[in-house]
Amino acid sequence: MAIDAATVRKVARLARIREPEERLEPLAQELNTIISWIEQLEEVDTDGVEPMTSVVAVALPLRDDVVTEGGDTRRILSNAPKSADGFFIVPKVVE
């Protein structure tokens, strides 16, 4: 597949990465190089091979339904640029 500047603009926007207009075309070329490199994997015949979900064949561990954490608002908020009364405070999100 080929990636154009419009696709790069969209992906950047979805990832909240600000890219100036003049960077879009060079980025598209870079990404196309990466993708064509990865496309070499298509040469491998994967018919009948289950997609690998983990490098170790173990099942998902399950934990008991008990409360082991919480009640530590100060620690939770310790990295927040702005907080008050136990809340994170962020720039206004307009709905």
Binding site: T68, E69, G70, T73, G86, F87, F88
Partner: peptide
């Protein structure tokens, strides 16, 4: 996916695990 309590009425960010 965490051991923080589920419930209604706790103070803000009191039921939050890392």
């Amino acid at each position: 996916f965490s051991g923080a309590a589920v419930g209604f009425g706790a103070g803000p960010n009191e039921q939050v695990a890392l």
